[in-house]
């Protein structure tokens, strides 16, 4: 087991700058789920100048659509979905204050450029380890787009969610580094 570094969400720019690609860290605090359909809606709302359903400042968006919760549990299995599908939307959200993203798989150049410009970070959660990650969720509440079902925006309180810094604010990409070494 490597040394355990726990980060508390929301994130300061100083914290984001201290992270480098390949670091394994644990996130505690609030994260918001949003995936394809929610991203599309958020961008449409920005276009119409409407307020966002939550304050982006320093907050983390987790690309995840959970399985249904069993009775007595806050949430069902909840692992990351592919971040690349959010590439069409992320630069707009980052320009509107979003700093932290959690998904899996690499990102496009426009997203990485926006992260460098606005001091953002992209974490990768462990794809497929969704039963384990559900145990990190202490509470879950739908706060927007309830009609989207699993794709609704949920506010999660998480404890020590295991993630890896996939792309840091300097644009270093763990997926590229892995292939080069």
């Amino acid at each position: 087991m490597m040394d355990k570094r726990i980060l508390c969400a929301p994130f300061s720019d100083e914290t984001i700058r201290s992270l480098k690609a390949g670091d394994m860290v644990y996130i505690s605090g609030t994260v918001y789920t949003a995936r394809d359909a929610a991203h599309k809606r958020l961008c449409e709302m920005i276009e119409r100048d409407e307020p966002m359903p939550f304050d982006f400042d320093g907050q983390a968006v987790y690309y995840a659509g959970p399985a249904p919760a069993k009775p007595g549990k806050p949430i069902g299995s909840v692992g990351p979905t592919t971040g690349g599908r959010m590439d069409a939307y992320s630069p707009t959200l980052i320009a509107h204050g979003l700093k932290v993203m959690i998904g899996k798989g690499t990102r496009g150049a426009r997203v990485i450029d926006a992260m460098k410009q606005y001091t953002g970070v992209y974490f990768a959660a462990i794809g497929g380890a969704a039963a384990l990650m559900a145990k990190c969720v202490e509470s879950a509440e739908v706060i927007a787009f309830e009609e989207l079902g699993t794709e609704a925006v949920r506010k999660l309180q998480v404890k020590e969610l295991p993630v890896v810094v996939a792309i840091d604010c300097r644009g270093n990409d763990v997926y590229k580094l892995a292939r080069e070494s």
Binding site: A64, G76, S77, A129, A130, L132, T150
Partner: peptide, 17 residues
């Protein structure tokens, strides 16, 4: 560990079922 939890709790290993 994830596979163990899923098996014992009868929870899906991955949310994408």
């Amino acid at each position: 560990e994830n596979a163990r939890i899923a098996r014992e709790e009868r929870s899906p290993m991955c949310q994408d079922t």
